[in-house]
Design a protein around this nucleic acid. Structure first.
Length: 416
RNA sequence: GUGGAUGUAGCUCAGUUUGGCAGAGCACCAGGUUGUGGCCCUGGCUGUCGCGGGUUCAAAUCCCGUCAUCCACCCCA
């Protein structure tokens, strides 16, 4: 293989044909859904000042502590390749002033996390995300969740599950932590090593330990909503009620935990069976982020596109297999015909017909083979005879039928 | 960051146990047909055996290191 210097960086890879066709199709379908739901695209820089992420994500989170690509620029300022999209969008909205209130934005682009790669996990990966700004309002949460499910419908996804939970309001947090710790304390000895550490550092994390022994203990703990105020419980109930009116049957998973500090109220996660151990296809939630002297509130989600691609390949194979095709392939015999075909191909392309042709002087057999491989429906053959007559031999590759067609009629015949 | 598996032609992989000429299928190219694809037949091209070092008369094969990929942990999308 190549020497190391010419390999991509670990966990980063090229996206090319044929998978790129599926990427393009998913993105095109998503943009159309976004238009219908009245969200507009924003493209923020991949590189931001480090403190944007430490401040918004919370500097005790794993993402900030262990996974960021951080380095200094020539002026000694600390920069970070964005590990997620929300912080940059909030920074963007913060610059809009009053115009940014109620902004409805989406983004598609690469994110960077320095984790050990595995199935469904790259160091450069891609997310499609949505952010709807505004004060907490269950209708906004329900609308954004409905939008997300609409995207999955547009992609033909079926094999996913939606889990919903609430983080409550920031004022609930101390009570939740305290309540969980008191409830778990009698079982400390039976918990796994990781969970005994989590008990101190991040007790919410006890809830989603993968070990079965821990899960059984956790199942006996009271739901976190029990430690929250009445307003937080009502907010969750309202979101569920509105989702029901939209025909969405969400189930509350009291053990669902989201990793980032900025979440308040509704959080949710979508998992898919085709994804291996990293089965989270998407995550979302309502957030509250203080930037400067202003607090930004909104609700949004992010979909992992590499994982969405895997899921579509499983749930919707026809969409995953489809490739763009040329309409016609031009075959030339002799230099004069080849030059004439270059002009003809330009005319047909300007008329909206996708054409391919061989630019070198290859045998007719080789050109026909290339035509066949291209998947074109038609072959346009021209040699001395056709040049003199002002015609082209038009052959249908499916049934082999062939006839001479005047050049003036060619485009119309190809469109038929 | 931790653990396991794997790296041989463009692709999928044999060959490694027991050191002895670098292999197959697919793909690609050409011919079989002086202007006709697919199917078929014939022929042909393709290699830093991931990289670096060591052992040996001799290394794809054994040893050490390193890089990468895959899978899992952790964590997340």
């Amino acid at each position: 293989m190549d020497s190391p210097a010419f390999q991509p960086i670990q966990g980063m890879s090229d996206l090319a044909a044929p998978e790129i066709f599926l990427w393009q199709r998913l993105e095109a379908a998503a943009r159309e859904v976004m238009r219908l739901w009245a969200f507009t695209e924003v493209r923020t820089p991949a590189l931001e000042y480090t403190h944007l992420f430490t401040r918004s994500l919370g500097d005790t989170t794993d993402v900030v502590q262990k996974e960021m690509y951080t380095f200094e620029d020539r002026g000694g300022r600390s920069l970070t390749l964005r590990p997620e999209g929300t912080a940059g969008v909030i920074r963007h909205v913060s610059g809009l002033g009053a115009e940014g209130e109620g902004a409805r934005l989406y983004y598609i682009g690469p994110m960077f996390r320095s984790e050990r790669p595995q199935a469904g996990r790259k160091r450069q990966f891609h997310q499609l995300g949505v952010e709807a700004f505004g004060a907490p309002n269950p209708a906004a949460d329900a609308e954004v969740i409905a939008l997300q499910l609409q995207l999955f419908a547009a992609w033909g996804l079926q094999g996913y599950t939606l889990d919903l939970n609430t983080r409550g309001v920031p004022e609930d947090r101390a009570a939740v932590t305290h309540g969980l710790q008191e409830a778990a304390r009698p079982h400390l000895g039976a918990l796994c090593e990781d969970c005994r550490r989590r008990f101190e550092t991040n007790s919410l994390r006890l809830l989603d330990c993968k070990k079965e022994s821990c899960q059984q203990l956790v199942a006996g703990l009271p739901p976190t909503t029990q430690f929250m105020g009445e307003a937080s419980r009502k907010y969750l109930d309202d979101v569920l009620r509105l989702l029901g009116q939209l025909g969405i049957n969400a189930k509350v998973n009291p053990r669902l935990v989201r990793g980032l500090d900025y979440y308040v109220h509704t959080v949710w996660e979508i998992r898919h069976g085709a994804l291996g151990a990293q089965d989270a296809l998407a995550g979302g939630g309502r957030y509250q982020v203080a930037l400067g002297d202003k607090t930004f509130q909104g609700v949004g989600f992010a979909i992992g596109l590499e994982r969405a691609i895997m899921a579509v390949q499983k749930d919707n194979p026809p969409l995953a297999a489809a490739a763009p095709q040329t309409v016609a392939w031009l075959v030339a015999l002799g230099d004069a015909a080849r030059e004439a075909n270059l002009q003809l191909a330009k005319q047909l392309r300007c008329a909206g017909l996708a054409c391919g042709m061989e630019l070198g002087a290859r045998s007719m057999k080789a050109q026909m083979r290339a035509a066949n491989k291209s998947g074109a429906r038609w072959v346009i053959i021209r040699g001395e005879n056709e040049l003199t007559a002002g015609t082209a031999a038009l052959k249908n590759l499916a049934d082999g039928a062939q006839q001479d067609v005047p050049l003036a009629e060619l485009a119309a015949r190809l469109k038929a």
